[in-house]
Write a protein that binds this DNA or RNA. Structure first.
Length: 462
RNA sequence: GGCGGGGUGGCCAAGUGGUAAGGCAUCGGUUUGCAAAACCGACAUUCGCGGGUUCGAUUCCCGCCUCCGCCUCCA
């Protein structure tokens, strides 16, 4: 598969370093509240990425961290009167539930920062030993950016620009007076009163690790010094990933990630999401509005990951209709089969080959979706004996996209009064009492139920 | 100021040096007592604007307008 690489700015063929397993790391969530659909664009794209690799027959090792010790988690845990672990465990469970609803595969390894404090301290010690970090008087430790000439290579920024950026975005932070250079970043933060009990002892005194360090330490632990790919939201390119590169290479050597994969931010109603604009949606928000998580997933796949995707509530309706159309198309294809089709992995994608090709060309999910519809149309003209192979290909692609199609709902839990109205309407219709029949139908519509007449009866849909 | 990504039919969104995928919506037809649902069909001479290169550009080059993102802890 070909994928765009942020560092070299070109599409590159992905091949595992060890020739066997593609090992990659994704920056995971900070668990201090429910994740929003913007966060999930990143995680869903990671998921599709992995599924495409696996569908193509590659073994994968997917590592995704949990950020459970940083400014926000500590601040909010303190405010809630809970221990950091209690507080973050709650939001981690919520995150997992949302991921499951969205059809995302759980990573093979999901390490938490809180559980890797010793590894982070060890890494800082190594950095100081190697002359890349220094402790300040207050017990904080900083990385010396000037000690690493390649700093800025990933984000294509040079030091002068970094300093300029700083002067234009000056923020009040006492820590900065302790730094040798304005561009240096913190590895260890000395203990502050507002941290409460959330501190650990270290050679530099009580404190806690800086945010960037956790990923470097956990990558070292689970993937070593050289691994296949690192990914995250585009905002992490600078400074987070830039800092990771600096920390990791200066402490352990090696080349760190061979490929960088970044997902562009989701926009809402044409602009940035923000709480104040009231357009920051969580999965629960959208489910409460009557949409499904799978519809959200479809919307997130409907734009290319390197382009800003404009999310609107209306797009969820389009997603719902599109998913139903795919489900119907699949049903038609399946009805041509003499025997049930097994879900064997297709290596020839038949009429859906263009969709598979699109996924393998820089993960072009919108093009793949388009070809899925076109393929379905082409499949209608196929002979019945070709249906099995085409259906297998279609299913393999759905699986690669992580899409689960809606199934016709069983009309089991219809309230008695609704059932009664529908029955009376059916009788009136049989008696050709159109006025009464239509009046009852309107009544059902008002109550939120739709009647779907069939040749020999009717169905009720909520 | 620096770095980067866009502007394609009513909306969303692919794409290509050779004449514009797909989804939603809309409109027709079949069906229906009328609807709904379903099925069939129609739907951009045109890709922000102005130049240039070319047999040919939406696609390459130049200029302009415009929208958006990032620039130290935000996926």
């Amino acid at each position: 598969m070909q994928l765009y690489d942020t560092l070299t700015r070109q599409n590159r063929e992905l091949k595992p370093i060890d020739g066997e397993t593609f090992r990659f790391y994704c920056c995971g969530p900070t668990v201090y509240g429910p994740a929003h659909i913007g966060n999930f664009r990143t995680f869903v794209m990671h998921d599709v990425f992995r599924r495409v690799l696996e569908t193509g027959g590659m073994k994968t090792l997917h590592v995704r961290n949990i950020t459970d010790v940083d400014d926000k988690t500590i601040r909010d845990a303190q405010a809630a009167g809970k221990t950091l672990k209690e507080f973050t465990d709650h939001w981690l469970a919520k995150f997992h539930a949302d991921c499951t609803a969205l059809g995302c595969l759980p990573p093979h390894i999901e390490p938490s920062a809180l559980e890797h404090i010793p590894q982070q301290i060890a890494m800082i010690e190594k950095l100081i030993e190697n002359g890349h970090a220094y402790a300040s008087d207050d017990g904080s430790v900083y990385f010396s950016v000037s000690s690493f000439p390649e700093y800025g290579k990933l984000s294509h920024l040079d030091t002068r620009e970094l300093d300029l950026g700083k002067t234009q975005n000056a923020r009040a932070d006492a820590d900065e007076y302790e730094k040798d250079s304005i561009a240096d970043f913190v590895l260890w933060k000395s203990r502050k009163p507002e941290d409460g009990e959330n501190f650990w002892s270290s050679p530099w005194g009580d404190g806690r690790p800086g945010w960037h360090l956790e990923c470097s330490a956990m990558i070292k632990e689970y993937l070593g010094t050289d691994f296949d790919l690192h990914s995250g939201g585009v905002d992490l390119v600078f400074p987070h990933h830039e800092n990771e590169i600096a920390q990791s290479r200066c402490s352990c050597g090696g080349h760190f990630a061979a490929h960088w994969f970044h997902i562009t931010h989701l926009m809402v109603d044409g602009g940035k999401m923000s709480k104040s604009l009231g357009n920051l949606y969580t999965i629960d928000d959208l489910v409460a509005k009557g949409h499904t998580a799978m519809e959200v997933r479809y919307v997130l796949l409907s734009g290319h990951y390197r382009k800003q995707l404009n999310f609107t509530l209306d797009s969820l309706h389009a997603a719902k209709e599109a998913l139903q159309k795919l489900a119907k198309g699949r049903e038609v294809l399946g009805s041509k089969l003499q025997t049930p089709c097994s879900h064997s992995c297709a290596d020839d994608y038949k009429v859906f080959q263009p969709a598979w090709d699109a996924l393998n060309r820089d993960l072009n999910t919108p093009a793949a979706l388009g070809h899925l519809f076109s393929g379905l149309k082409a499949a209608q003209k196929l002979d019945d004996d070709q249906a099995a192979a085409n259906l297998a290909a279609f299913d393999a692609l759905l699986n690669a996209l992580g899409l689960v199609l809606p199934v016709e709902e069983e009309t089991t839990d219809i309230p008695a009064d609704i059932r009664d109205l529908a029955e009376r309407r059916w009788q009136a219709k049989q008696n050709k009492d159109w006025a009464a029949s239509d009046q009852l139908r309107d009544q059902l519509t008002t109550l939120g139920w739709t009647i779907k007449d069939t040749p020999d009866g009717y169905e009720l849909i909520q």
